[in-house]
Design a binder for these strands. Structure first.
Length: 639
RNA sequence: GCCGGCGUAGCUCAGUGGUAGAGCAGCGCACUCGUAAUGCGCAGGUCAUCGGUUCGAGUCCGAUCGCCGGCUCCA
């Protein structure tokens, strides 16, 4: 009998009869938990028969690839449940996502919350039936006939684009779904399921096409894992900057004021001013020059820059005054370009780094606005570097270094870097000079590689004027968004005919780097609130110290201490209420004030304060001077 | 902008067609207290807005506005 040689990931080699099922191989290898297996690096169903020598690795739920397969199979189970409950439903697509899975379905009406419960219950039943999930290959024309008869128009559309003569399907019980696979071997493996939400989703992501109903769900092999996941979701909600922002009185919105237009309340404004002072200071040390530009500009400026052609749908419409047409500025770059152009530059002057905490107004679709993450009025920590072509790499590297310094100060470690490139197939969103794109994108690839910065390329993510490097962070809601961005631009210098005088006495064209490190003040604030879960470190805390006198007779001493701390620049408040100390502590504790100072008879007579920390509780008494020193130390080290 | 859900006191939420409620916060009074809620009292509402059905609407219907979750888009 013919044999096949299997090499396992630990290097062991074993022989099996030719045609052995992968399920038997992985079981033999001591991996009964395997959901699928990799054969020479490619994911395969466990039912696959092995007919050649190969490297075989078992894949379980613990591995990201295993999860994806598991959730993909869960999406099929969801579809099966929906089809049983709503036979007229038309299925679209049902992929796994980072956290779970979804399926886009058309049942001619939206799903109601009760529908979800019924579907979820049906999924549990289907899991209990524990049917095998089998791969079947069907000739293409037969598949087309099946789907035409069934009226599955979305599947049919997908099928039209598959060139192969045979198309793979997966069958569980009577349910059949076109799918590339692979899948877990049995429905019974999908044990703990929760359908989380429904929403509308455009067919193929195109807002001009049908609106389908999407059901999101999550699943795990064990109930405890699902419970833990749901608990974690609840915990994340507690970090939500909208909730903490309201509770800590940092910012607010008012219906009367308009959508997406945040108000910075006094305590939030304190944090913002610290951030602004901080970044201006850091940038100044690195050769940036800070400027101010008006919020309004002639539409003419944006016609030259190209924003009018490529960015108009995000701009507020122009207002006519006298013989001018003015718009609210949606970006700062043209203004900084005007500043660059205001004087002549020698090659010796470059790079010129023009920075601004630039307030911008963008018309964002109403449905996209969320808290401070996405607003219509925002202030960007913006800068534009005008440099010679031979300086691009070093300037780019300097920006990345600056970013790393800033991230250290805020203890930001959890982020991902993307290289956003233009999509040659989608020309209308990008400037038309393909050669410029090649130059700019090639340069960015090179710079990132030299900096050893790992990144994910994103085709179609570029701005109209050039490619960019985006730093992605996660919100409490689990969504990714851009914090820092560095963009390379050969286009605007050309459109504005920017020049510098070279060594040869002739005019040359500079290159622009657009960059934002702290993002917008709004988004940074949202990020920091969630990052710290409201526990701002002392240097950022809107209120650093709350003074808590034990009784009325200690008010005078408390005031004295308050004044001394304020004299050292501390942000300090005094609780003058007639309450007992436990109650007085509760409030600053809930408001995330880092230090509480309790003063009573003992402290007043000895010139001390009893220090309580928000995080570690009672620290005992110490001289006022010692506390002042301690907190000053924390502020300078930004702890 | 599109799909769905939601909108009752500053906040969290009860209230299934028949006289608008609770807790916390706020204000007043008393207690002067040692590390996360002292007690008593008082106030607080065009039930998002507008229209409709009904003898009667917080409750049912419609529109508008806003918020939330997605889609699309993006700092």
């Amino acid at each position: 009998m013919a044999k096949v040689r299997v090499t396992f990931s630990d290097g062991k080699v074993k022989e099996y009869p030719k045609g052995v099922a992968l399920a038997d191989v992985v079981r033999d290898a001591g991996a009964p938990e395997a959901l699928v297996a990799k054969v020479d690096g490619e994911l395969r169903d466990l039912s696959t028969k092995l007919d050649r020598d190969a490297q075989v690795d078992s894949v379980t739920f613990e591995q990201p690839e295993g999860r994806q397969v598991y959730w993909h199979s869960s999406a099929h189970l969801l579809a099966q449940a929906v089809k049983e409950l709503f036979p007229e439903a038309k299925l679209a697509i049902g992929p796994p996502i980072d956290d779970g899975f979804y399926y886009d379905i058309d049942i001619g009406r939206p799903f109601a919350p009760e529908d979800l419960e019924h579907i979820e219950a049906r999924m549990r039943e289907l899991s209990k039936r524990d049917e095998p999930i089998e791969r079947v290959e069907i000739p293409r024309d037969e598949a087309i006939r099946k789907y035409t008869e069934a009226g599955e128009k979305y599947k049919l559309e997908l099928l039209q684009e598959i060139p192969d003569a045979r198309v793979s399907f997966y069958r569980q019980d009577g349910f059949l779904d076109m799918c590339r696979g692979p899948h877990v071997p049995r429905t019974g493996l999908i044990k703990a399921v929760k359908l989380l939400s429904t929403s509308g989703a455009y067919w193929r992501g195109d807002e001009h096409r049908e609106m389908l109903s999407r059901i999101y769900g999550i699943s795990f092999p064990r109930q405890e894992q699902l419970d833990a996941y749901l608990h974690q979701l609840e915990e994340a909600k507690r970090r939500d900057h909208r909730r903490i922002g309201r509770e800590l009185r940092l910012f607010a919105f008012a219906d009367e004021l308009g959508q997406g237009l945040p108000l910075w309340l006094p305590r939030g404004a304190v944090v913002r001013r610290i951030l602004e002072d901080y970044i201006v200071d850091v940038e100044s040390k690195r050769g940036y020059h800070h400027v101010y530009a008006p919020d309004l500009a002639s539409v003419q400026l944006y016609k030259i820059s190209g924003h009018w052609d490529y960015f108009r749908e995000n701009m507020y419409p122009p207002m006519k005054v006298d013989n001018e047409e003015l718009v609210l500025k949606p970006m700062n770059c043209p203004h900084h370009i005007m500043i660059y152009k205001h004087e002549q530059h020698s090659y010796r002057d470059l790079p010129v780094r023009i920075a601004e905490l630039g307030r911008m107004y963008r018309y964002e679709k109403s449905g996209t606005l969320t808290g401070l993450h996405r607003v219509r009025s925002m202030t960007l920590n913006d800068a534009h570097i005008f440099c010679r072509p031979d300086q691009v790499k070093q300037e780019f590297a300097a920006v990345i270094e600056l970013m790393r310094e800033v991230y250290r100060d805020f203890a930001i470690v959890d982020y991902r870097t993307e290289l956003s490139l233009h999509d040659p197939k989608d020309r209308q969103y990008y400037h038309q000079d393909e050669e410029l794109w090649m130059t700019a994108e090639g340069l960015l690839h090179q710079v990132l590689d030299e900096l050893k910065l790992p990144y994910t390329p994103v085709v179609g993510g570029a701005n109209f004027y050039g490619p960019k490097v985006d730093v992605q962070v996660r919100t409490a809601g689990g969504k990714e968004e851009t914090l820092s961005t560095v963009q390379l631009d050969f286009l605007l210098p050309r459109r504005f005919e920017l020049e510098y005088i070279g060594e040869d006495g002739k005019a040359h064209r500079p290159v622009m780097i657009h960059r934002a490190i702290l993002s917008t003040m709004e988004r940074m604030m949202a990020f920091l609130i969630e990052h710290y879960a409201g526990d701002f470190p002392v240097w950022l805390a809107p209120e650093q110290v709350r003074l808590l006198p034990i009784a009325d007779r200690h008010l005078e001493y408390a005031q004295e201490v308050r004044d001394r701390l304020a004299g050292h620049g501390r942000r300090v408040e005094l609780d003058t209420s007639n309450e007992r100390i436990g109650y007085k502590i509760r409030h600053p504790q809930l408001e995330h004030v880092p230090y509480m100072l309790v003063v009573g008879d003992k402290e007043a007579s000895s010139g001390q304060v009893a220090v309580r920390s928000r995080s570690s509780g009672d620290l005992g008494p110490m001289p006022v001077e010692a506390f002042i020193e301690r907190i000053a130390q924390e502020v300078t080290t930004r702890r």
